[in-house]
């Protein structure tokens, strides 16, 4: 086997996450799909680190994890705020600017 196979898995996971962001309606599920995309990118970073034989990719994946943690904290706070005012976590309901 070749380490490239990990990259194929990463690209598949990233694509699935992207479809989820577009297709799903529940804001929390959309958010989980964003997390899936970030994780796929991390897997690619770690694999590239192994292919190139240096640890810079792993450091980048580490920073991505920290940024993802921040993103989760703020994003979930936003979802809770929207839910508190609109009693719904569906992304379709928060379309006030359209009307």
């Amino acid at each position: 086997m070749n380490p490239n196979n990990y990259l194929y898995v990463a690209s598949l996971l990233f694509t699935i996450g992207a479809v989820g962001v577009v297709v799903r309606r529940n804001a929390i599920v959309v958010f989980m799909c964003v997390e899936l995309m970030l994780n796929a990118a991390n897997l690619a970073f770690v694999t590239f680190s192994r292919i190139n034989g240096n640890l810079d990719g792993q450091v980048t994946a580490f920073f991505t994890m920290v940024v993802a943690a921040c993103e989760v904290v703020v994003g979930l706070a936003i979802i809770v705020t929207i839910y508190r005012s609109r009693r719904s976590a569906s992304v379709d309901d928060a379309s006030l600017l359209k009307r």
Partner: peptide
């Protein structure tokens, strides 16, 4: 999926990650 990725990381010499 995340647990699986953790196993992948450890297999790829990224123990800390």
């Amino acid at each position: 999926v995340m647990i699986t990725l953790a196993i992948f990381y450890i297999a790829q010499d990224a123990l800390f990650l």
